[in-house]
């Protein structure tokens, strides 16, 4: 008998966000549009980054920010909901290994991240369209970033016992990491201290690499960004898998 435990769980996780897509896809796309509208309105005539008009520069960052935040939100909110309502028991009763469990939640998060990212890209195309210099890098960074945040979302969703704990995780970790990552600016424009701080933010490399895919230029070489992003992903996967293997907070 072929084990389809993984595929069913993955399918269920995708179906879960798809069924409430107004909330899980349309809302984040709208949020990104609002950022674009406001920032480009204020800054378009005053700021050029890497020699690009500000709106064009901003779009890839906004796309990536949406990818990352939604990948995180997908795994974390699904898991905390299932734990609070108790229906995670149906998955835990099944012959599903911790690896399958991990893969299903993370891949569904990647799908959600990419769907929202494409939505943002599609709707912002009306304002300005960035080029697609190196699409391979675009895809690589989007997938790595979404997987990393999906994995972090799994940890948050299992660690948090209440919705406000998850909100704290989101507000005090995910938001600062994504906002202070050069979504709205090039770090070259920051004072030296904040440039140093940004170098310690893995999200910075993901956004920088992602942007390189569009413009063929960025603050760092894409290979450096790729190495940092992939390294962080591997570490995050190892941590998440070991928590799941131990049954941390899932199997008491």
């Amino acid at each position: 008998m072929v084990s389809s435990g993984f595929s069913t769980l993955f399918y269920k996780e995708v179906l879960r966000f798809w069924k409430v897509s107004a909330q899980t896809i349309a809302a984040p796309v709208l949020t990104a549009m609002l950022y674009l509208l406001i920032f480009s309105q204020v800054l378009e005539d005053h700021v050029k980054v890497h020699g690009l008009p500000y709106t064009v520069f901003l779009i890839p960052g906004l796309v990536m920010m949406s990818v990352l935040q939604n990948a995180f939100a997908n795994a974390s909110s699904s898991l905390i909901q299932s734990r609070v309502t108790g229906n995670l028991v149906f998955v835990l009763l099944a012959p599903i290994s911790h690896r399958e469990f991990f893969a299903a939640y993370v891949l569904a998060s990647v799908v959600r991240g990419l769907v929202v990212g494409m939505g943002v890209l599609l709707f912002t195309a009306g304002f300005a369209s960035p080029s697609f210099a190196e699409p391979g890098w675009i895809l690589a960074f989007a997938v790595i970033g979404a997987a990393l945040m999906g994995s972090l979302g799994v940890i948050a969703g299992i660690w948090a016992d209440k919705f406000d704990q998850l909100a704290a995780f989101q507000n005090f970790l995910i938001m600062p990491l994504t906002f202070l990552s050069g979504v709205f600016y090039s770090i070259a424009s920051l004072p030296p201290f904040w440039q140093q701080v940004s170098r310690w933010n893995p999200v910075f490399y993901m956004i920088d690499g992602f942007r390189f895919g569009f413009f063929g230029l960025a603050d760092h070489s894409p290979w450096l960004s790729f190495t940092v992003a992939a390294g962080c992903l591997i570490i995050m996967m190892a941590v998440t898998l070991s928590l799941l293997k131990r049954g941390y907070k899932l199997r008491t």
């Binding site: 072929v2 389809s4 435990g5 309502t85 028991v89 149906f90 998955v91 012959p95």
Partner: peptide, 27 residues
Amino acid sequence: VPQELVFDPFFTVRETLRMQAGYFGIG
């Protein structure tokens, strides 16, 4: 059959059962 009355509010009865079968490798 768990003691607590748990359910997944996203799905219908049939979807719930198909999903559960899937978790056990029944396609």
